[in-house]
Design a protein around this nucleic acid. Structure first.
Lengths: 242, 242
DNA sequence: CAGTGGTCTAGACCACAAC
DNA sequence: TTGTGGTCTAGACCACTGC
């Protein structure tokens, strides 16, 4: 049902061509008019596809010249919805995940304030421990609206939560708000992450994810072992290619 | 010369109306057809303005209903190009800045690898120390292409580097790549940031900023006192309102 | 049903880069 | 001058929401 949209198809095609190396980094992709004739669509449709390539960090438009392919990092989605990159490990980086707890609960007054959910909302509660290089590196807690994702199974969670929500359930994630801080570590966290006494802080990422209708779908909090923490982000600072 | 563009003007108007409270959070702004007649422009122009509002995190479009105003955080730009927010201090948060060193230098082989600049590039080198609540909290080093920003003065730096580059020089920032890590602290850094012996790490943000023509303008590295570190980000996860 | 945003089209003119 | 991307227009049809 989704992806029957022309500009998204063209976007995927061009994206593939860039990843394949058909259009190498630093080179120009075909111009808008050329693609328009080639694909037999209107220029606006081509421009929409290009806007996606631009905001995804594949190309950079240059007026008068063309659209240049820029460096792209093979990002590894970790912590579900935050795009991560293990700096020391270029390829084949596959973290192991252990599900510590999987239950449902109802949001209390206290939790409501912390998570952003309304009181009495029913949510799934998923605690996970993630390993990098065999070392326990991330403590994850996810709360997810039960009515929006009723068929959550352990299986689905073991894979990518992100893919499950967008792929299987057909939910469209609209935006998220993330807060990064470095609070003091607790005794329990120190034990779980096998940290010695010289470490006194963890890197904490709190995240709230919203759907298209402006409803909150998820709250999550991830606590990272500082020596395994690496976060990469690509930020556009202009019109995203309008 | 800039801002003579219709959709940007409309964007600014609507943005102001949202900030003013004319369109409160959770409410719908006028529809596309209504704005189109009101402003006497084409629908496409309205949609472009709305796309900006969407990617800036002011509204969320909902098909069949309208465009809803969503919660917006008054972000404080710190570290020039990274958008910050002091979580504990809602309003009037104004950090003090001390310029430690200001000189020009030429990129060596070693620096080239680290910063992304080509060898022999001439850059400004600016070392700063930033204070939050009177506490030295961030050590900043910025390297900026000298040929692109030749008239850099101490004055300009004391204010906002960001505003200087975009406003005065008319440069258009295209995108940036940021890497966050938590490396071990050095003795010198511990002294500068007045950290006691229980702290063993700093939060480090490396950033490379590129212009429209895909040229690198800036490299910067910021080292944060962990107890003063707070980073907030808004991330769109869909089409940005195409 | 009427109203909203989402997609697509065809055409025009402008601003900029390269030759 | 030619080709590129940037802006703007007017109109069409579709998909969804709410009454």
């Amino acid at each position: 049902m989704r992806m029957i949209v022309k500009y998204k198809i063209i976007y995927e095609q061009l994206k593939q061509a860039i990843l394949d190396g058909t259009y190498p980094e630093g080179h120009l992709i075909p111009g808008e008019y050329q693609l328009m004739r080639q694909m037999d669509v209107s220029r606006d449709t081509i421009r929409k596809a290009m806007a996606l390539l631009t905001s995804s960090g594949y190309i950079q438009k240059i007026r008068g010249k063309g659209s240049m392919v820029i460096a792209h990092n093979n990002e590894v989605p970790l912590t579900n919805l935050i795009s991560f990159k293990e700096l020391g490990h270029q390829q084949g980086f596959k973290p192991k995940t252990k599900i510590v707890e999987f239950k449902d609960l109802i949001i209390t007054d206290k939790l409501a304030k912390e998570t952003g959910f309304a009181v009495d909302t029913e949510v799934w509660s998923i605690s996970r421990l993630r390993f990098i290089d065999g070392v326990p590196s991330i403590i994850d807690l996810d709360l997810i609206r039960k009515d929006l994702a009723p068929d959550m199974t352990k299986q689905a969670i073991h894979e990518s939560l992100y893919e499950y929500l967008e792929g299987e359930l057909g939910l469209t994630l609209a935006y998220s708000e993330n807060d990064l801080t470095a609070p003091l570590i607790s005794t329990k966290e120190r034990e779980t992450l096998e940290l010695d006494a010289t470490e006194n802080r963890i890197i904490q990422i709190e995240s709230r994810v919203y759907l298209n209708k402006s409803e909150q779908l998820q709250y999550s909090i991830a606590k990272h072992r500082p020596d395994k923490f690496a976060y990469h982000e690509f930020i556009r600072r202009n019109n995203h290619g309008l």
